[in-house]
Structures are given as structure tokens and as C-alpha cells.
Amino acid sequence: MTVAVLNFGGSNCDRDVVKALRRLEVPADVVWYKDEDRVADADAAVLPGGFSYGDYLRAGAMAARTPVMDRVRELVEEGAPVLGICNGAQILCEADVVQGAYAQNLSAKFQCEPARLRVETTDTPFTRELSEGDVIEVPIAHAEGRYVPDDLDALLDEDRVLFRYVDENGDATDEANPNGSVDNIAGVVGESRNVAAMMPHPERASHPLLGSDDGLDVLAGFDAADSE
């Protein structure tokens, strides 16, 4: 499986994602967003973190409306794994590939800190290495990460919450919610469960030297050898 890690002007976590995927021996390359053919030819895609288009208008709003997003939609329709991380998650929401929107953190500050995530569903490539209720440590780094769903009931009914922010006991408390996200939601999957959006950065938890390598379990969703 070759993973296209998209680079929009202003993406800045693209190389970290490639490095983390290569640690898993998953072939991955940074692909410039105008190089649409390479995205179309890829077996999977990551929309990485950063500040695409300088966060003009709203985080992710400009990138969400670039032509390459049609290629990303096609990958999703084909059933390829597609993951949006942080700014990539904002882009997927702005593009309506997954439902919801990201508003400013309740703190009104940029927050860069460790977060505990509880796995809420394993019916998606990105948590198939994990079990429901597992808690992983993956850092967040964002100013607009307060998830507001379009239709919370649909998310819950269809079991589309991927991760929730939880405390040391694994409980989704207000104190454990770093940004005011509705229902402590840290990640969601789309209607087709091969696409997911999450604010925490799995690539920043991809080596013991980084304090955690729990993020590798998420990125393992791109490891074709593990599928089926």
C-alpha cells in the first residue's frame, strides 16, 4: 500500500507522518496537493496537520475547496483508508467528508499537550489493532479543536465516534476535555468507516523517545499486511 500524505501550502506535519508510516514499513510519500494524479494513484491518503493556507477564513476552509479533494473523495468511495489529522481533520469537516465543524478551543488558546483517548469503535482500519475501551496517549496541538457535530444522534446511533478524551480512569469527564468538544469527541469516522478525522496527532506518538508510541496503533490502519 502506498500512502499519499498530502502537502498543502502550510501543512507542516507531513514529513512526520511519512516517517511514522515508514517505521511501520508502510510506503508513504509527501505529495503536493496539485499533483492530483499521484493522489488518485495512491492506495490511501493522509491529510496531515499544520496551517494550510495560513488558516485563512477558517482552519481548513481553503484546502477543503481545492480540486485535489475530489480525488480524496474518490479514494474514500473506493474504500481506501483516509485519515485527517488536526488541520487535516478540519479540512475533512470543511469538505463535508465527515460531519461536523471545529470551533475555537474554549480556552481561546493554542493548546499543545498530551491527551488520553478512549477507543470507542474498532470498526474502522484506524483502531483495528486496538480494543474498545482501550486508552491511548496521543498529543494534541491546536487552537480550533472544539468539535461540534452536525447531528450528534446520528454519530451515536451509527457508532461513528472514534475516540473520546478521557481522564486517567478512562472516564470522559469535563476536566479531561481539553477544548470543549461536544461529548468529549476527539475523532469521528465518516459514513463509510474507512475515513476518519481526529484532532490528536498519532505521528507525534510514534516512537518511545517521543514519550509514547501509541499513535502507531492508529497509523497501523494503513498497513495492508494487517488487513483482512
Binding site: 470551533a103 475555537q104 478551543n105 474554549l106 470543549g180
Partner: peptide, 13 residues
């Protein structure tokens, strides 16, 4: 504007 009910931390500050 933000919809009624969507908290506005910047305005609060």
C-alpha cells in the same frame, strides 16, 4: 456570526 448556542470564547475573553 456564531450560531446561538455555540460558545464564543474569544468574545468571553
Amino acid at each position: 456570526t456564531l450560531k446561538e448556542g455555540v460558545l464564543d470564547p474569544e468574545a468571553k475573553t
